[in-house]
Nucleic acid binder design. Structure first.
Lengths: 138, 138
DNA sequence: TATTGTTATACTCTATAACTATA
DNA sequence: TATAGTTATAGAGTATAACAATA
């Protein structure tokens, strides 16, 4: 099959992202985490007391879809809420959440390192700047 | 919001792909096409008489999901089938399908060019080799 | 035995609309 | 007026299992 699409940057981008996504998802699955769960844990950890809405805005997740997501993290005992004012709730990691995040970070960092290792050295350092330009230049 | 994720290649890859995907989807929408429709038209064009199963394998689309997809393209008058043997059917573009593909290609190529143009010149030529290594090196 | 095309179905992810309460 | 949290729901997209017919 002649795959004419192989050299189209948009197609390649999608396929590479999809392959990487699937691979990482498989590794995080062993921890009982989806990628989005890990992303939320990371953001809460580096932004204690931020709200569900703010986390959602950063990750492009609708407010409404944050509800079941956070419920899952709360039910697992990884995240807790504390009232900020009458309408907002600040999110924080529990000790169990911090421990789970540490496990997740180990998986993620080894995965990211392995991603970069696959790229020939002469191209490697150009990937992040290029992706950054693509993401923001839209 | 401190976005710790900004410099993780896997995350950046996913966000860049998602942004590019959404942008191209918007442009193809004017033609009544989804991205996957365009991909299928492209592959049929460069591989006449290939089967639905073969197209699906190349694009990582399940056989079962090719059925409604091809039905849509057939109903639009862009694709036709001709029996290869008792169990396989070869796919081809109709003249209307070729015309639609030409429109789609114009959109896609201008989009791809604009994607590359966003990348600073010193990084630009490294993107495709890097993505290729990521996609295949999994 | 393996493959093609197909049907039916379930599951995940995401989007939208509406509502309450508070800032 | 705008925002936070929530509920309910709809729509894509994708995955799985099963089947008949053919290679």
């Amino acid at each position: 099959m002649d795959d004419t699409l192989r050299d189209k940057p948009g197609y390649l981008l999608r396929r590479a992202a999809s392959a990487a996504t699937a691979e990482l998802a498989g590794k995080l699955d062993h921890l009982g985490l989806r990628q989005v769960d890990a992303s939320v844990l990371i953001l809460i950890d580096s932004n204690p007391l931020s709200t569900a809405s703010a986390i959602g805005r950063t990750l492009d997740i609708q407010r409404a879809n944050m509800v079941p997501l956070l419920k899952r993290l709360e039910d697992a005992g990884w995240v807790e809420r504390s009232p900020i004012d009458g309408k907002s709730q600040g999110l924080n990691l529990t000790p169990a959440g911090s421990a789970k995040l540490a496990e997740a970070m180990a998986v993620i960092e080894s995965f990211e390192a392995s991603l970069l290792a696959r790229i020939p050295a002469e191209h490697r350092d150009h990937l992040l700047p290029a992706l950054h330009a693509l993401w923001n230049g839209g």
